[in-house]
């Protein structure tokens, strides 16, 4: 496996898993539908080589109107199922608009699934607007800025999250914006955890 950086952009070369292929297929449908997105949480660590699998991939998407969402739904449901809403109207009104996640998986295969949410907060919108590129074997994926992602994982605080944070930090530390990292560590109240795990 190889990880190198060109500015903020990460170039990752490694064998792909079925999870990687599923993520690429899903984000290509978002892109075809003109919907901005950013991958967040566990898959970011997996993308950067963390040796674990995941049942779900968290993804924040631009807060679009129903028309654009419906076009995305129709494209997605050619090869995928929405697990928790039976039609686009219910998915839009009962889930996304109410800050609840919608889950999409390959047909008749609920795991793994993509867990999508609308960007609702200032932090969500900033994350989409400032997404970094992580190119996996030539395919560009938008990921949460690592300077946010690492402290956020420390904030979540489970063993798995702390391992993800430490993995991401060890792989990428020489390319991080330390001023930004320190700012998010402070805002998220994880100075003690950062002193322990990011050293």
């Amino acid at each position: 496996m190889e990880v190198r950086f060109e500015g903020r952009d990460a170039i990752i070369l490694r064998p792909e898993t079925e999870l990687d292929r599923f993520v690429k297929e899903f984000v290509s449908i978002l892109e075809e539908s003109g919907i901005g997105y950013v991958l967040v949480s566990g898959y970011v660590a997996i993308l950067f080589g963390r040796s674990r699998n995941s049942e779900d991939v968290d993804i924040l998407v631009e807060n679009v109107d129903f028309g654009r969402f419906e076009r995305f739904w129709k494209k997605a449901c050619k090869s995928m199922d929405c697990i928790n809403a039976e039609n686009p109207k219910r998915g839009f009104e009962d889930y996304l608009s109410d800050s609840l996640a919608l889950r999409f998986s390959r047909k008749s295969k609920p795991i793994p699934n993509m867990e999508i949410k609308f960007a609702k907060t200032e932090l969500d919108e900033w994350t989409i607007a400032n997404a970094a590129n992580a190119t996996l074997n030539g395919y560009v994926l938008k990921v949460s800025p690592l300077e946010l992602q690492i402290p956020y994982k420390l904030y979540l605080g489970s063993f798995k999250d702390i391992e993800d944070a430490r993995h991401l930090w060890l792989v990428t530390k020489s390319h991080l914006d330390n001023q930004m990292l320190d700012s998010f560590i402070g805002q998220l109240g994880v100075k003690k955890e950062a002193a322990k795990w990011l050293s």
Partner: peptide, 26 residues
């Protein structure tokens, strides 16, 4: 100058609890 968002910790804690409930439901 860094233009970073201000994080609402109360909202973040609410999201964390809601995510945990959603995941358990799944």
């Amino acid at each position: 100058e860094l233009k970073l968002p201000k994080i609402d910790l109360k909202e973040l804690a609410r999201q964390k609890r809601r995510n945990q409930r959603e995941r358990m439901a799944f």
